[in-house]
Design a protein around this nucleic acid. Sequence first.
RNA 1: GUGAGCGUAGCUCAACGGUCAGAGCACUGGACUGUGGCUCCAGGGGUUGAGGGUUCAAAUCCCUUCGCUCACCCCA
Length: 424
Amino acid sequence: MKPIFKGVRGAPDILPGEVGRWQRVEAEARRILQDYGYQEIRTPIFERTELFVRGIGEGTDIVEKQMYTFEDRGKESLTLRPEGTAPVIRACLEHHLLTRGGLYKVYYTGPMFRHERPQAGRFRQFHQIGAEAIGVEDPALDAEVLDLLCHLFDTLGVSGWKLHLNSIGDEACRPVFREQFTRYVQAKKEKLCPDCRVRLERNPLRILDCKEEGCRSLVAQAPSPLESLCKDCKTHFHRLQELLGLLKIDYSVNEHLVRGLDYYTRTAFEFVNPALGAQNAIAGGGRYDRLVDEMGGPPMPGIGFAIGMERLLISLPQEEQGEMWIGVFAATLGKEASQLALQIVQGLRRQGVRASLDLEGRSLKSQMRLAHKERYRYTLILGDEELKTGLATLKDMAKGDQEQIPLREVVNRLVSQESRGRAE
RNA sequence: GUGAGCGUAGCUCAACGGUCAGAGCACUGGACUGUGGCUCCAGGGGUUGAGGGUUCAAAUCCCUUCGCUCACCCCA
């Protein structure tokens, strides 16, 4: 027997055995986001293609080669969302959520889609928890956002994470720097690696990030990105660093940190887990002070981040599977007993007790094994003898002892016993 | 998109080109006529990813293809 179908490459199933971890992390993240004043927003997983092209930027890798784009029946070009910020801004503008003009904070969770070659920590469908804080330019907001992420990672027990921080300038100084940098590198382009020669044409600032020795030394002599910032950007960045000191948040400035989405301005950051392999960013984000404006809204600054769920999850300490030992399994012998058990189990479930019984005609031994394997705290044994005497046998699977209890009291006894069992 | 490595039972892995492809775990049953875990015994499970080739003989060597994995790229 071979299955006929396989899942789509890069789009893994999340199986019952791992869903618990997802739920716990999502719950913790939601709690913290709410503590910091964020409300949840849910946007569709697809949008008009144009939203992403305009929002993320035409020349970016995402738009150029990673989008899942298709035509719907009305011949409209739609795209499975590759990121969350553009849809959120779109929704905020469409529903006039920013009209009050003050600070507006929302978060989202869910799947994102990018057509890349899968590898460790990289998928075609992956999941993000993201947040956007719109309407405030003050670096105190940047600090707050970074604090939120530190707090979340520490709470979850991510060990060894590092915060990389940079400022990539704004519409005033970035083009100037880009111009200077490109001119410098252009003059010495024979020292560049082949990849960087391509970058020079397409996206010169990426050269800052190259790992090749030749490129690195060239970059080291080139104009410094941070020193090329305009006065306002410098002030913003310095103030942010002061505030991070105040909040005792560890970070390292990495002036070669470049972001792959065009909308970022000023603050750019990445939370990295060095233990992870090549794809080691567990969260990333930054400021986008022009994006709202560019999307047809009022000029409003903003900052956001996205956490990669899959990468976050593998960064978490192994939690040992806590043995549950909860609930009641009704093991039966014979048809009559089986019917009685069905009623008892129904009653227990209605009282909120985890309860089950055999529906496969298993032997008693096999039912016991099943009860043990599925970690039921009690097994209620019902057979001819119990029906005759009106006393059911109740076995405590954790302790191993058993007692007789009157059939008519079974549900009530188990409900109270079960709540005591849980408390232990 | 480019490169490398790997595909054997549900899972983890064995098998110098040479008997009928094995083991552990898991599963089912028994020892225990109505009692889980521990132990022992037995049993079911495989087109060796697929297709072709070399050979007296292929899980093993070669080619093709698909899949997985890792890396480049890029990012969460």
